[in-house]
Design a protein around this nucleic acid. Structure first.
Lengths: 227, 227
DNA sequence: ACCTGAACACCGTTCAAGT
DNA sequence: ACCTGAACACCGTTCAAGT
């Protein structure tokens, strides 16, 4: 048997020498989670998949993270760091831009969008966003009591929009379940839906989002001014 | 060995004679699902658990239901049958009553509330509810184009309210994560949140729901009248 | 003291094999 | 033809046992 060639390519890869497989940490875990959410198309977050990617067993993650629900909170806040809270224009334009930025960040991955009603956003970035919205509403002349409730309503609108969008795997497309349902609305039994069917399906996502923001802002101003 | 007493209580229970273990059907499955959602506190719907309760293996359900996501759609519509679409008063009062009824039905079980952004409500009851809302908005003088988009916004509001409520396992309680987050909002870094902290936490769920409906209706009317 | 393999108690879905 | 036990490919979480 010939001697082993000492210059042969090593096929065993020491995991120590593998370049920059960094030691486990909260940050590494959260970043891997976000990476998977943006690449793995729509698949739900999984501790086991994260562990595998980081070359450990799932139990090891529990040293750095309390469990799935804490991880979700960390991931959500990390993602919210991308929300732009400063832009230019009137307070109304800046509010709209902020909400669009918020929705855009959440819509970047379906898994993130689905997370939005499972975890309450209470991290530093949620704080930053809410503070900015309160600032803008104050500029718009909305009193503090109404503004304080309004931030929740605006947030619900953003969250519901992205969550709805993430859920429908094409429900709104031509021939999809929504169109089929509308087709089932007869003039006799559901006259109003029947009559409005084209209007119900009209508009792009962004048009409808802007329309929603307009409705909310009008409502908030109207209420604030009546008091 | 003594003879068996022919009058002894039978301990073997023929499943044929067990009273009314009805044959499998879509309806039986959907009803068992709803039963479990209202009793099993907050646990997510599970095909396996339904199958066990109906005395079969999980595979048997697939003869009657396409899979989890079709079951969810059926369950949601079945539940929506409980939404009251007729009440008395002005159109505005009747709209508020309808939305409260809708929210109440969905909030009956956390599992149902969580389902609301996973499945698009397109069954007969969703049709009935949407038709009633369109009718009320028409009464209120809202044009068809705005009303057609408004039904989605109102539905998102109801859904987001119950979904948020279902998610927070007490996030809003005194000492809960929301209060803790607000405590982290310093006067220096987050002045508006800091100043509004009491207002942010104020109000009951129902007060805030009615406030939200008021904002939405004001906004919709304002927009409709401006065109 | 720290870490983790293996186990626990679940999932939804598929399909071969049996009646 | 219909039905389903068992398997497949996953989950999150726990914990005993090892270093």
């Amino acid at each position: 048997m010939p001697d082993k060639d000492p210059f042969r390519e090593s096929r065993v890869e020491s995991r120590r020498s593998r370049p920059a497989k960094p030691p486990l940490s909260r940050d590494v875990i959260v970043e891997e989670a976000l990476r998977q959410m943006s690449t793995e198309g729509g698949a739900p977050l999984s501790l086991r998949r994260i562990a595998k990617a980081l070359d450990t067993g799932p139990a090891s993650l529990y040293a750095y993270v309390d469990g799935m629900s804490e991880l979700q909170a960390l991931v959500l806040d990390h993602a919210l760091a991308g929300v732009q809270t400063d832009s230019v224009g009137s307070w109304r334009e800046r509010l709209e831009a902020l909400l669009i930025s918020h929705a855009t960040v959440l819509a970047r991955s379906p898994a993130l969008a689905r997370m939005v009603f499972q975890t309450t956003a209470v991290g530093p970035n949620a704080l930053r966003i809410n503070d900015a919205v309160l600032q803008l509403l104050a500029e718009g002349g909305v009193d503090q009591a109404n503004a304080a409730w309004a931030i929740d309503l605006l947030d619900m609108f953003v969250s519901a929009t992205v969550a709805e969008h993430a859920a429908d795997t094409g429900a709104a497309q031509p021939g999809g379940p929504i169109e089929q349902a509308l087709a089932r609305a007869s003039a006799g039994e559901h006259p109003h839906v029947h009559a409005a069917r084209d209007d119900i399906l009209s508009g792009t996502g962004e048009e409808r989002f802007r329309w929603g923001v307009d409705i909310l802002v009008r409502g908030i101003l109207s209420r604030a001014q009546s008091q």
